[in-house]
Every structure is written in C-alpha cells, then in structure tokens.
Design a protein around this nucleic acid. Structure first.
Lengths: 183, 183
DNA sequence: ACCTGAACACCGTTCAAGT
DNA sequence: ACCTGAACACCGTTCAAGT
C-alpha cells in the first residue's frame, strides 16, 4: 500500500514489495498465490477503510443530511488514495468473484448506504415505494461517478480546490435528492 | 484496439501490437513516443466513439426522455467495450493534460450532455436556476458511476441480464430527474 | 522517413534446494 | 512452514545501423 500511495499502480510490483519487506523476490509467493492475489488483498483492505469512513460520516451527521456527509467521505477517500481507489474498482478486471472476502468487503460499503436509505425511508425523507437496495445503488452510482471523474481529472472546470469540490458534491447530492426537474 | 477487446488491458503490449502489424517490435516507436502515447491515442478514439453514440441517442430520442436514451447509450458503450472504457478513464493516471487532443475528445462527450440540459432548461423540464454545465456534470457523474460499477461487476444483485440493467438505468435516470425525496 | 536487430534493465513465475 | 538463487519467458525502451 505504501508503494501504491507513492508511485501509483505502475510502481507496485512484486519484486519491489519483496525488496521493501527485506526478503528475496520469490518470498511473496509463500504468502500470495500470485500478483493478483496480493492486489485482491490490498483492494479488500481498501474497502474496509472506505466502509469505515462512510460509516463514520453517517454517524457524525446525526439527523442532518447524512447523504451529504457520506458523499463527501466517499469523494475524500478517492482523492486521498487515488491509486488504491483505482485498484479497488478496476484492478482485477473480471474475476472479483474469485476472491470471496474481497467481495464481502465491497458489499459492506454498499450496506452503509442501504441502512441510511432505510432509516430515511422510515423518517419519510426518502420515497418509500422503491426498494432500499435499489435506491442505495442509485446513490452509490452518483457518488462513485463523481469520485472517479474527479480522481481522473475529468472535471477540469472544477479543479482541485477543496471549495470547488465541496460545491460539486453538494450539487450531486442535491441533484439526486431533489431531482433536476422543477418541483 | 483489437487486442484490448480480445484480452483486456493486460493483453495490450507494444510488442504484440507490432507483431499484429507485421513489423519489428521497435517500429511502433516511429509512430508513438512511448506506450502511453499509444494508449492516449486509443483513449481518444474511444471518446470519439462514445460521443457519437451519445449524440445519436439524443437525436433519436426526439423530445421524449433524451436523458434516458443517453444513459442507456453510455452504459451500453461501457458494457460493450469494457477494456476500452477502463483505458479511457483510468489508463494514464494523471497527465491527461499532456495529450491535448485526448482532452478535447473527452470534453466533447460532456458537451452532448450540456447541450441537452440547455435545451431542457429552455423547455422548462430542467431547473433553470443552476448552470447548465454544472447540471451536466451531475448527470455525467450519475451515468459514469452506474456504467463503471456495472462494468466492474460491483452490482451483482443486478446481474448482466439486459432487462435488469435496463431497469437500473431507469432508476438512476429517475433518481436524478425526479429526486429520491418525496414530491 | 521508416524499419531492423542486438542489447539492457526489468518483471512475474517456477523450481530445486535449503533451514 | 518459510526462504533462497538460478532460470525462463516476457516486456518497454534505446541505439547504431540499414533502405
């Protein structure tokens, strides 16, 4: 994870990891089947941390705009650990299912959203005629898209000043909460 | 692009490209500065195609739910060309600005959304007290997040049956259009 | 202007061998 | 159970040399 943070995905190779650990370049194969297995373990750890930060955001928000807090936390995580975020969501191409514990960890991030939606549905601040999981997926898509586009510098007009990013998070949360159609 | 489609990003190496083209493995350096430059060219071509499909979707929609059509087109593109989509949005890490024509191409995809928002604002179907570009960015985030999460198999409860995906696209468009707060 | 072949530094992975 | 060193196949890139 240090290598990932320092030099991005390109800097993360098994031999460098072994060097950093002070062992021979074949030692890692005693602990991981192959490079993908190491990446899966790293991604899993990433999901654990992301889930914790989302959970924290919901808790600290109390009854006031939990979704805004979660969105902020999600974007903040992505911008703080861009290489990790990329590895979590696109490192292992297709066989995510081949790493069950990784799959579990990634589901826990969604679970935070589902729980908040259920709470808001009970409170009446979110529509009740739609499944909570489905609504959570919509929220996740919104947050994820925003985080990834910012991370990949695809919103140059937003830039990287915290205040501009904060405004963009607000707009996205407002967009999905209030809708862009006139009320 | 053939290699990308067949075997994903891992299968795309310069020597293989050269082999496929029937030249020596150093010949590509006469046409591209390095591997990143080739990837940039591929990503650029990807944005051109994505923009065309989004534009087509808006046009064919006429006055009926253009946003739903664009969302569908965006998701469809991502699921049809997953490796290309990944390369377009996360291949070259940070220095996207180092490839001006790539940057231009990626802006043209957003422009399709901006134009539709402006049209809908004039028609009164989208709120007018917010900048069109900002609203387009919100829509883009929604579509992009949905497409990437589906592409990376992060929504296993949705699966890959076209009808389930279609439903999810509908929910996301409805979410950002109507809002998830009761009206 | 475009291509080639040798060469270099590097990586993922395997394997026989050690404690 | 964990580690090592040699070895193999492979890649990105450079360079002198060719047409």
């Amino acid at each position: 994870m240090e290598l990932l943070k320092e030099g991005g995905a390109a800097a993360l190779d098994l031999r460098k990891v072994a060097r950093k650990a002070g062992v021979s370049h074949t030692a890692p194969y005693r602990h991981f089947d192959d490079k993908r297995a190491l990446l899966a373990a790293i991604a899993e750890e990433g999901f654990v941390r992301l889930t914790a930060q989302m959970q924290e955001a919901v808790s600290s928000a109390g009854t006031m705009f939990p979704l805004l807090e979660v969105g902020r936390a999600y974007v903040n995580f992505a911008l703080t650990e861009p290489a990790l975020m990329r590895e979590m969501f696109s490192g292992l191409t297709i066989d995510r299912m081949a790493y069950p514990s990784l799959h579990e960890a990634s589901k826990s991030a969604l679970a935070v959203l589902v729980q908040d939606v259920e709470r808001e549905q009970r409170a009446g601040s979110v529509i009740q005629d739609e499944d909570a999981t489905n609504l959570a997926l919509v929220l996740w898509a919104m947050f994820h898209g925003l985080a990834m586009l910012l991370l990949e510098n695809q919103m140059p007009m937003i830039g990287s000043e915290p205040s501009a990013i904060e405004e963009m998070v607000r707009r996205c949360v407002a967009g999905v909460y209030e809708g862009i159609r006139p009320r």
